[in-house]
Write a protein that binds this DNA or RNA. Structure first.
Length: 678
DNA sequence: GAGCACTGC
């Protein structure tokens, strides 16, 4: 272990070809061919050599930043070292993860290493699942879950240590937690309560930022077990990255042994499906002495069963080629990748606080992201990475991906901060501050929803706002639920909001378009997507939540099951708030009225020329092709979100009366009218 | 006339 002051630049630590990438559980699971006992495995980790030094440091320090290369074992071992050394043993050690699966698999792994039953000494808490008990001392949880817990107890008194893992990913939840744990630590010290130890764990990015933010916390560096990776850049700049990727894949394919699998990073579903087809076509016509190629697409909306195929080995003598979005950067770790092809491009969301518009666009990756991709080639053995851009181009990439908190609508975050009773949301101690415009836009939005009001120069939550914060939803959806008793349709609104807050339940395989349309016909409502989804849910419920029915109707059964879980969670919250649970049965008018009242800020009107403009800023927008109403021209609609891709599209529409909108927010629309008249 | 990166409460 090297122990540096935080001012030293960490980048020099890395040998060329040994990029800073982060560890994944799979590394420990697929550890080696020889069977080792759990104890032998723990001792064989690089981190074990530094165990006593680490313990001494952790005992001494209130806050520490730990930088660990891949395979260092920091996430599984450090919580155990703390426990074994009786540091923070009087209460619970929390370890956060950005993803559910990681929290679950890490807890499972560590409980095996402790030889205890999961939920006893070691447990986990994620949404819908709490596998902990009175005995639990080491608890893995999602960052979002710890943030939820903080709402009930901003000082996090349950915990003696909070470890924020994968901090370099800078998820919006981790970024808010930085501020929450920092303030909890300070307050607990002031009130002479049990101290809170903070451990930030990260790959090598942002070290100085982390250390400075936590009052100059020392940085510990851990050696990893990353295999060397050779990197090749292109000689010339590539104007067509798809063509470049195709050429590279087949060049590699014809030159290296078939057992070496290739992972290609592309930007989206359509591109990946097209490239899959091209690769399959070309590979059919290769010379006989060339190995066969198994091409697999990989992206998030691919059905789970098809995603799992990337873990199967290709038949002997054949090469696996995986064409993936950035899902293979962090969420899915594929063993045995020898070659990575990095196009240097990614599809990502940007947010413009002025227009309130989210733009989804193909853009260049950051250096950190390029390193992350490269690292996917060296997990089990040395690897090779082809970067489809020149080295000079790479040097011009942004160092870091912009943290999520600077890229999205902050309405939920601001509501959360207010319910956490932070003194002033405008001056909250963010590690990377969002723009003042972005914060103000979120406050304005909460104001329109009736969640906040101004008292003097302070912004405070209204009783309605406090209720809204109880729901794990975007504020506009919590508001819609809270409005629903007025329209006697809480049961239906719960269903609709649940359907909208999980991945789409509609499965649309491109090859079976006509069949899909025929099957879907019976659910379609001319009143829009919300009511259509409600019809689908009702049919699903009435037919006993049948799996065959899902398949026949091109409904994603897994996502439908998620809907049931979300719905029951939201319903429990309604009951705790003593809301009357009524159903509007066959009447859809009041459901649409309720949606109009909740989503009035997202309304659009048909213009004489047949196009649409938003009611608030008169921006031209179009109906997204995925909408039931794509071919229709209703006079007035509300929508869930605007998304700018090739055009500005509204997604998920509901037909409403213009009058309902004015009833919902007379002041707001009067103001809008005035501005439009001049 | 034509389309959707990835998480999470």
């Amino acid at each position: 272990m090297n122990h540096h002051g935080h001012k030293q630049p960490p980048a020099k630590k890395f040998k060329p070809g040994s990029p800073p990438v982060k560890p994944k559980m799979q590394a420990a699971i697929h550890c080696g061919p020889k069977k080792m006992t759990v104890e032998e495995q723990r001792r064989s980790l690089p981190i074990y050599l530094a165990r006593s030094q680490i313990i001494a440091q952790l005992r001494k320090l209130d806050s520490v930043v730990i930088i660990g290369e891949t395979g260092s074992g920091k996430t599984t071992q450090i919580p155990q070292y703390l426990y074994e050394a009786s540091i923070g043993r009087q209460s619970i050690i929390a370890v956060t993860q950005p993803r559910r699966v990681a929290a679950i698999s890490l807890a499972t792994r560590v409980s095996e290493e402790r030889r205890t039953e999961l939920s006893k000494l070691v447990g986990y808490t994620v949404r819908f699942e709490d596998v902990t008990s009175e005995e639990t001392k080491i608890k893995f949880l999602t960052d979002g879950m710890l943030l939820r817990e903080a709402i009930g107890d901003p000082l996090l008194r349950k915990y003696s240590v909070v470890i924020l893992d994968e901090a370099h990913e800078r998820t919006i939840h981790t970024d808010v937690l930085f501020g929450v744990v920092k303030s909890a630590q300070k307050k607990r010290k002031e009130q002479e309560k049990q101290p809170l130890k903070i451990i930030i764990m990260s790959a090598t990015m942002d070290v100085d930022l982390f250390s400075e933010y936590f009052n100059g916390a020392p940085v510990l560096y851990l050696e990893g077990r990353q295999h060397p990776i050779q990197i090749f850049y292109t000689k010339e700049s590539q104007s067509d990255y798809l063509q470049a990727a195709l050429v590279t894949v087949f060049q590699v394919h014809q030159e290296v042994p078939a057992s070496h699998d290739i992972l290609v990073f592309l930007t989206g579903q359509e591109e990946i499906e097209a490239m899959t087809k091209t690769c399959r076509d070309i590979s059919k016509h290769l010379p006989d002495d060339c190995p066969k190629m198994v091409v697999m697409p990989l992206y998030a909306s691919l059905p789970h069963s098809q995603q799992l195929r990337v873990f199967q080995n290709a038949p002997k003598g054949q090469r696996k080629v995986i064409l993936s979005t950035n899902i293979a950067e962090t969420s899915i770790t594929i063993p045995g990748i020898k070659y990575v092809v990095d196009t240097g491009m990614v599809k990502a969301k940007k947010y413009n606080p002025e227009s309130g518009l989210e733009v989804l666009a193909v853009q260049k990756v950051s250096k950190a992201q390029a390193w992350q991709r490269t690292g996917r080639a060296g997990r089990e053995d040395s690897g090779i990475c082809y970067r489809l851009y020149k080295e000079e181009e790479f040097e011009k990439f942004e160092e870091m991906t912009v943290p999520e908190i600077q890229r999205c609508n902050l309405a939920s975050v601001m509501l959360q901060l207010l319910v956490l009773r932070v003194p002033n949301v405008h001056t909250f101690d963010f590690m990377s501050k969002p723009s003042p415009d972005s914060i103000q836009a979120a406050i304005d939005q909460l104001h329109l929803l009736g969640a906040v009001e101004r008292k003097g120069d302070q912004i405070v939550l209204t009783p309605l706002g406090k209720k809204m914060a109880a729901f794990p939803l975007e504020p506009k959806f919590s508001k819609t639920i809270l409005l629903s008793p007025k329209f006697h349709c809480t049961e239906e609104i719960l269903t609709i909001v649940s359907l909208l807050s999980v991945d789409s339940v509609l499965h649309n395989p491109a090859s079976k378009r006509d069949e899909v349309q025929a099957a879907r016909k019976k659910f379609i409502s001319s009143e829009g997507d919300h009511i259509t989804l409600l019809n689908i849910y009702r049919a699903f419920k009435n037919l006993g939540k049948n799996k065959d029915w899902c398949r026949e109707n091109f409904i994603n059964g897994r996502n439908m099951t998620m809907v049931l879980e979300v719905r029951s969670q939201l319903r429990d919250i309604c009951i705790k708030l003593s809301m009357p649970m009524e159903s509007s049965r066959t009447d859809t008018r009041n459901i649409r009225q309720c949606l109009a009242h909740g989503l009035f800020m997202h309304a659009a009107e048909l213009q004489p020329d047949g196009t649409y403009t938003t009611v608030d800023t008169h921006q031209p927008i179009a109906i997204h092709p995925s909408s039931i109403l794509f071919h229709c021209k209703p006079a007035c609609v509300v929508y869930n979100e605007l998304l700018h891709t090739s055009k500005c599209y509204m997604r998920d529409l509901c037909v409403v009366d213009a009058d309902w909108l004015f009833e919902a927010a007379p002041d707001y629309f009067r103001r809008k009218l005035r501005t439009t008249k001049k």
